[in-house]
Simulated assay, not measured.
Amino acid sequence: MAASRPVVFIHGLWLHATSWEPWVEKFRARGYEPVAPGWPNEPGTVEAARENPDAVADIGIDEAAAHFADVANGLGQDTILVGHSFGGLIAEKLLGEGVGAGAVAIDPAQIKGVLPLPLAQLRSGFPALGNPANLHKAVALTSAQFRYGFGNAVSQEESDALFERWTIPSPARPLFQAAAANFVMHSPAAVDTKRDPRGPLLLISGTADHTVPDVVTRSTLKQYRDSMAVTELKQFEGRGHSLTIDSGWTEVADAVLDWLAAQGL
């Protein structure tokens, strides 16, 4: 591993950037230089983000991707991208644009070309997608909605604690963009899966995930079948969408660190 290689952590919808703090500490202890910036206009704390949901309203995939590209490019070509959920989609998108030396996409949101749309995924996205008027708004989850979409594989008590600690209102627009991706010619959810050369990519899925079911991540892997670059999938049995923040997060983080080391990153 190159000394002090930068890492950019990219969170998805409904979690605050500070939810990456344990990962930042762990990666720094391994010699990396990690950062976990928020999405454009995201307030600096969970409390501030809850008090000002309109700050992030109407932020879309392209705006977020450009924001994180600026961060990664400012840190240098050796930067590693690690994203969760829509952050995973953004990590894939940026890697396909030549940003970063490698990427890890954990439970990545559905990219253009992925066809499976399981009922669990539809239900998880319903708090935003259920009302077309939400397109330009920021939407918050209830604890019950978080339990279904994120915390279904942990106890009720842990799910409620994670909800209270990390959740924030998030823009609904990326969900609408991903949902319509296969019907839009120039969708912001499109990823250049054929780019060659590019850095290695690791896809991670939790087999109990409701928000991004395992079948969706496996279908995402198939989108890279024409790529000559390293593209791998690691599945975590019985894990849900909360796998980056729940009590089992270290297992996932260790797997990511091991994979990066194996790739020389």
Rank of each mutant, 00 (worst) to 15 (best):
D196K: 10
A128Q: 02
E232K: 08
G151Y: 06
T244S: 07
P108T: 05
L162D: 04
V191G: 00
P174R: 00
H16A: 09
E33N: 13
D70K: 15
F163C: 10
P188E: 02
A229F: 01
G264W: 07
L202T: 08
Q263I: 10
R225K: 14
Q145A: 08
P108Q: 09
V35M: 11
A178E: 00
A261F: 07
H84S: 12
D196L: 08
D70L: 13
E158R: 08
P127E: 03
L201N: 04
G76A: 13
A178Q: 02
G96D: 02
E63Y: 04
G98V: 05
L117K: 03
V82H: 02
V215K: 01
A255H: 08
P174V: 00
F183Y: 05
T45P: 10
G44Q: 14
E63V: 11
Q177L: 01
E232R: 09
G83D: 05
P40V: 10
S159D: 09
V24M: 08
G31S: 10
L129F: 05
H241L: 11
L201G: 11
G100Q: 04
K194D: 14
R218H: 12
T167W: 01
G76L: 09
W14Y: 15
V104N: 02
V191E: 00
G199C: 10
P213V: 00
K112P: 01
A55G: 06
T18F: 07
L115D: 15
L89Y: 03
L129S: 06
G238K: 07
L13D: 03
H84N: 11
A138I: 06
E237S: 15
A179K: 02
Q77S: 15
P118W: 04
W249G: 05
A133T: 13
V215T: 14
E251F: 10
D70P: 05
L89H: 03
Q145F: 07
D160K: 11
L75V: 09
G248W: 04
V215R: 06
P174S: 01
E51M: 09
S219E: 10
F126N: 11
L129D: 00
V252C: 06
A17V: 03
V7L: 14
W39R: 11
V56K: 02
W14N: 06
H241M: 10
A72Y: 00
G88K: 02
L141W: 10
A138K: 01
N152W: 04
G100F: 04
P53R: 04
A3M: 12
L203G: 01
D192S: 06
L201W: 02
A109D: 02
N152F: 07
A109Y: 01
L117C: 08
L265F: 05
S155I: 12
V216H: 01
A29F: 10
A29K: 12
